[in-house]
Design a protein around this nucleic acid. Structure first.
Lengths: 210, 210
DNA sequence: CCTTTTATGTATCGATCAATAAAAAATAAC
DNA sequence: GTTATTTTTTATTGATCGATACATAAAAGG
């Protein structure tokens, strides 16, 4: 049964995708409501009735990004067959996603509001939490790898996770600076080679024959 | 001999430091002229007479940052005794500088205007060139290290330089997200360990006895 | 002194910011 | 058809944006 009043003549997800594109290219602060209404094809009152405010719109855009635009970079980490596969996936998938020709370069979550002051504090905090969670996701996978025996006991999983997330966040800057897919993939491959070298177990000491 | 008219009652460099602090914390776009006049203690006409425009002020702030605020992260690369020392210096000095308690966290050049659209295109381009130059500085040092025999012939200097600059740029994001000096230094040390592992020459084949 | 020159303080410019008021339009319930 | 409900359209709102006009103040040159 349709609702009582006049039906809206736009699809919520369709216009959210338009908003995502604008926020992704221009960041939160520099995207004006005029930019959004133009891109979404809505008059301001329709936009505010549907999404509440610029900040509320961005929150919904961020959810859409995580569902469809985030490209599954981080979601696959927990289910990956090994820590190495998780690292390879994150780095290479990032290189691909950040150079996708149909999308703005780099990651919305890294690039949309890097200032600690200035942009809406709530927006900054949400994005910061997403970035911090990237580290946790990696760390937890690495800890499991230690328990599984893939990684040596005593491996500093927090340090490795922070290091890799930092590299991946830097790849957004690189992409935004115009790097092509080959350059991004080169960084990913170098990072993966570094991973292999970092976590290679030193030759196990000969077991005590006694 | 003093100039003809009424002397200005502020020191150019002193107020530039105030402006640097504001731009560093809030980025180019979200810093308003009202923020700047308040922090610098100037009325708008004095500010415009001295610096021309917000963009002109930022250009001078950027020069000041490179001279005094940049902390000598990249300047020492060309003169470093070895490629490894250059890498160690860049990573560790960044960890220190990005967590200096008297300064905003992270690097102005990475954080001030990450959007490709939106902020003044000229400002974005200047910052982008600085970041790109970071890669070149590293690459050139690595190429010299290959010529010196420190690095193996055939080493992909461009890939290594891009990888390390990407890591260093990511450290600004990490710092802006609140990481303390220990966390930043952990990333630096991990990156340095990765460097050592990446460039370690495979054992040289036994020289042909003939 | 008076003129010239430069900097300052006050007040404000038009443009744009995010967000709305009010009325007309389009549907369902009755 | 009439009413109730919701969306759309049009036209603005006060606030803030970067940047200035204008008059005054403070110095040097004559």
């Amino acid at each position: 049964m349709p609702p009582r009043g006049r039906p809206r003549n736009f699809d919520r997800e369709t216009v959210l995708r338009k908003a995502l594109d604008v926020f992704w290219r221009k960041g939160f602060e520099h995207t004006s409501m005029a930019d959004l209404t133009a891109a979404m094809g809505l008059n301001p009152p329709s936009l505010y009735a549907a999404f509440g405010s610029k900040e509320g719109l961005f929150r919904e855009v961020l959810e859409l990004y995580r569902r469809h635009g985030g490209n599954g970079i981080w979601e696959a980490v927990a289910d990956s067959a090994s820590a190495r596969e998780a690292v390879a996936h994150v780095l290479r998938r990032s290189a691909q996603a950040f150079s996708h020709e149909d999308r703005p370069p780099g990651c919305l979550i890294v690039l949309a509001a890097p200032q600690s002051e200035g942009a809406s504090p709530a927006i900054c905090e949400i994005l910061r939490e997403h970035r911090t969670r990237n580290i946790s996701v990696l760390r937890e996978r690495f800890e499991r790898a230690v328990a599984d025996g893939e990684l040596a006991p005593g491996t500093d999983c927090q340090a490795l996770a922070t290091y890799l997330a930092t590299l991946q966040h830097g790849m957004s800057i690189l992409a935004r600076d115009g790097a092509d897919r080959a350059a991004l993939m080169s960084v990913a491959d170098t990072g993966l080679a570094a991973w292999d070298a970092l976590v290679s177990r030193p030759p196990a000491p000969a077991p005590d024959p006694h």
